[in-house]
Simulated scan of single mutants.
Amino acid sequence: MSDVRAQLGADIARRSAGAGASTLVCRVVDVTDTGGVNLLYRGALLLDVECSTAYRGRQAGDLVHVRPGVRPLVLWKVGEDPGAPDESSVRDIAREIAVDEDAVTAATWGTGGPPGSGWQTVTTTYVRKDADGKAQLYFQLGSVTDPSPADPGRAPKAKTISPTASGTWRGGRPDDYASSPTQGDWTGRGNRRGGWFYGAAIQNACSGRTVSKMTVSFARKRGSGINGKIPMNLFLHDYQNPPSGQLNLGSGPEDGLLRLSVGARGTATLPASWRSQLASGAARGLAIYASGRSEYGSFTGGKITISFSA
């Protein structure tokens, strides 16, 4: 990496002596877990390059202007302002805030008792908590002169589940030499497999709800394998807690969900069949496995965000 940085400084010195150019355009390979980026420059990776606050909405694939030097700095992105307001995203944020602040999520009435469970009767008023702990009211009337407003049917707020444990296995048993879940074999001592564990938290969060989406976020550790992008070979597993013996793998691999260079962070959307298994408890967590050096890497994170439609 130091050779690439030196070449970058030499290039800008030559350009400045000629046409007076002060920046170079590079391609972003990944956004890192420190908020910087990995850049592709002259066919090589330039790692952990800092970014100015003018470079917003950072994403892999961006073309950016870079001020070279001993410590290169990404100045801005080529293209339209990524910070321009977007009505859809603003509405989504406002909706999330409204769900957080609501004291009452539904108020309906009719001549019969309310449907569902959990209602408590206060004379002719019923009250209960919904799945997000917000109050719901129902009013029983002797006769209806004005129809009840429709139940707003607001989808429950998304839930984020953090792993309660993680680890690595090699040779059919836990590998205490790996500090983070690891896939592949770098030293010739055998292929590793890693796993993230959530107890029953995923199934409990999904109980009684319709899951519309599940995403998971990871970061690739520095100093693990080649610097370039490698795929995370993701599997399901059915353990609530780390096993004392082999970590057996379930459905998978899904190797196209996420590819990361060292230090990079990313988020993947889990396949529909996987979210169904996790929501029902047929699967309990996520694992990684690879063979050999080419896809060797260690990863941290594992937070799963669950979105609901009902």
Rank of each mutant, 00 (worst) to 15 (best):
R284M: 05
V66C: 11
S207A: 15
P147L: 08
Y239Q: 13
D146F: 07
R5Y: 07
I306A: 03
S244Y: 01
W274Q: 10
G195N: 12
T32C: 09
F299Q: 04
A103M: 11
G266A: 11
A19F: 06
L249V: 06
Q240I: 03
K229D: 13
V29Q: 12
G199C: 09
Q203N: 06
G112S: 15
S180W: 10
K303P: 03
R67A: 12
I304S: 04
R275H: 08
S179C: 02
A272H: 08
Y198A: 05
R128Y: 05
P243K: 01
A135Y: 07
D3G: 04
I226S: 15
K159S: 02
A282T: 14
G281C: 08
V66Q: 09
R58S: 05
D146S: 08
A103W: 10
G188M: 00
G142E: 09
L8Y: 07
P82G: 11
A279K: 06
L260P: 10
A6F: 05
G184M: 00
A19V: 09
T23P: 03
R259T: 12
V66P: 08
F197G: 13
G292T: 02
R154H: 00
R58L: 10
V28E: 09
S309Q: 14
L234G: 04
G35C: 07
L260W: 07
G208T: 01
T164A: 13
I97S: 01
F218A: 08
V70E: 15
L39E: 03
S298Q: 02
F139D: 03
T34N: 14
K77Q: 15
Q183G: 08
V4H: 07
G57P: 00
S89Q: 15
S224R: 10
R5F: 07
T267I: 06
L63F: 10
P231S: 13
V211N: 09
P147S: 02
D102N: 12
A290Y: 05
I230C: 04
T105M: 05
D30K: 01
G250Q: 00
Y41D: 01
R14I: 09
L249W: 03
R209T: 05
G223N: 15
R58Q: 15
G199L: 00
Q240Y: 01
S180R: 10
D176F: 06
A165I: 00
G112C: 02
P242L: 00
S280D: 07
A17I: 03
